[in-house]
């Protein structure tokens, strides 16, 4: 296992990065980017999630096959949620959604 290989410095750096990204999300909310409003917000959110997964949840430092199985299935389940929900949103008749 890889509990103590990461320096606390790195943890603080990631933490500050997450805070900065949160600030950026809040700041961008005041600027109207048209259709890019949602895209930018989701991109930043995804980036933050990746940082948490890689560093705080140690995915970067593990080579266990089981861990990859867990991560891949979690992502796959998210894909199920999005894909089947979009099956509704993309095929609703105009004017109803």
């Amino acid at each position: 296992m890889s509990e103590h290989v990461v320096s606390t410095k790195l943890y603080y750096a990631i933490w500050i990065a997450l805070l900065v990204l949160t600030g950026v999300t809040a700041g961008v909310a005041f600027i109207d980017l048209g259709p890019f409003n949602t895209i930018v917000a989701l991109t930043i959110a995804t980036l933050k999630a990746v940082l948490v997964l890689l560093f705080f949840m140690h995915l970067k430092y593990t080579s266990e096959k089981m861990t990859s199985v867990v991560v891949i299935s979690a992502l796959f389940w998210l894909l199920i949620l999005l894909a089947l929900s979009l099956a509704d949103y993309t095929t609703r008749p105009l004017g109803v959604n």
Partner: peptide
Amino acid sequence: AGMSIYAALIF
């Protein structure tokens, strides 16, 4: 509930 009938077929 008012969802798309095409999605309803899939489900």
